[in-house]
Design a protein around this nucleic acid. Structure first.
Lengths: 231, 231
DNA sequence: GTGTTGCGCTATGTATACACTCAGCCTCAT
DNA sequence: ATGAGGCTGAGTGTATACATAGCGCAACAC
């Protein structure tokens, strides 16, 4: 019997592989912001021809991770301080709306459970022996929570936009790192949002999300302060 | 001396031409929703090779105008009643936010002028001898207004998202048609929004936009009612 | 010594050729 | 007559070949 989860259900196309790899390398910083991607170079590096690479780069450009370099390659975009401000302004708007919709339409029991999960994450994150796995688990929890909100909000346009934004948020997060203090605060904020949704309290869901995004932005502002980001 | 506006500054690439043409044909209905686009077929029709067509279709898929047909061609998406609801829910959120930001950051004189323009459009649109040119002019005015809000909101993520949405709104608009009543109401609503922005009244800009989108949706709901749209 | 012109290299844009998949149908065996 | 199996052709996915444009460098003229 095959181990199903490890057996790729589909032998991913070359374009898809090229896209996934370039994307993850940009997100985790293996390809630094400002680097120039040349089609031939990437094609040989990734072991595919130029065609899939072109397609992959096209998608990255559409996502805003890369921008056309005027004929000569495509350069990996950077995340400026101004971008972070704009990004979070937009996030506040969308995530708050999504939370509100989730409170209106979502399956309450799901969010009761999430509230509990977030609450029980707090002591773990606060503990001084906080290790990477715990942090990764916490990000996984957030990911599942976001997913649940996507489902509950039941608005494909909204979901698409939020997913697009999350890509950029991931870059910001990685640039800024995280502190145990911020993580515990985050968990408490999420717990409140989840409770609000679970209780069908649309206004509280909206406002708690707004507060959460605001605090998150404030954290990043402080993290970036003084390390001289380009405008 | 060249007539600058008619002189294409750049000899648009084949991909770009393919994209523009397919896009406009989908938007104006020349290519009906539900049609299947085959790469070879479109390539020969548009007089280019498959490569630019692939790229064009890729972009259309990313925009949601077309969806992959499981290996065999890509089908032009339709706009269901549910899509319209989701679309306007999202629009309300984004455009309201944009109007609020414009009220906060925009150059007031610009919006004073727009308010005046919208007010003076009312009698024209109300007139019984309303012709197509007047309607087109009015849509042009809206377009310029949207553009001004884009600039004033000064948030690239927000602008991108709204532009993406407007593509779909254009399809809805064309499907529903317009009535003189709705157009005059629309002009008045826009005038109010413009005034609110001009006056720096963020709350009013937000709420007036919300109301406007709501009324617009209501109009489309009525237009679609009874003509049996697919879910 | 400096400015200019032309050549060549490189990287993209486009076309085409090749490989592979899948659906539909036809045939043959039972 | 009917079902299974293979064939065929259309269509996509990928590779490669060809065209073209821009930049740098070098050489030559002044």
């Amino acid at each position: 019997m095959y181990t199903l989860s490890l057996m790729p259900s589909k032998p991913l196309s070359a374009s898809a592989r090229a896209y996934e790899q370039l994307r993850s390398e940009i997100l985790d910083g293996s390809i630094a912001a400002g680097s120039t991607l040349y089609e031939v170079e990437q094609a040989s590096r990734l072991g595919v021809s130029r065609t899939p690479v072109r397609e992959a780069i096209g998608r990255l450009v559409a996502q805003g991770l890369v921008e056309p370099g005027g004929g000569r390659g495509s350069v990996v975009t950077d995340v400026s301080d101004q971008d972070v401000e704009s990004l979070f302004e937009m996030r506040a708007c969308l995530e708050a709306q999504a939370a509100q919709l989730a409170a209106l339409r979502g399956k309450r029991s799901v969010f009761v459970d999430f509230a509990e999960e977030f609450r029980s994450a707090v002591p773990v994150l606060r503990s001084p022996s906080l290790d990477k796995d715990a942090v990764r688990d916490y990000y996984g929890l957030i990911r599942r929570f976001d997913e649940a909100i996507n489902v509950a909000a039941a608005n494909p346009y909204l979901v698409d936009a939020m997913e697009g934004l999350r890509t950029h948020v991931a870059r910001v997060r990685r640039k800024a790192g995280s502190s145990p203090e911020r993580l515990t605060a985050s968990a408490l904020e999420h717990a409140l949002i989840a409770s609000a949704i679970a209780g069908g309290d649309t206004a509280l869901a909206l406002h708690a999300t707004h507060v959460h995004i605001h605090n998150s932005l404030e954290h990043f502002r402080q993290a970036f302060a003084g390390l001289g980001n380009p405008a």
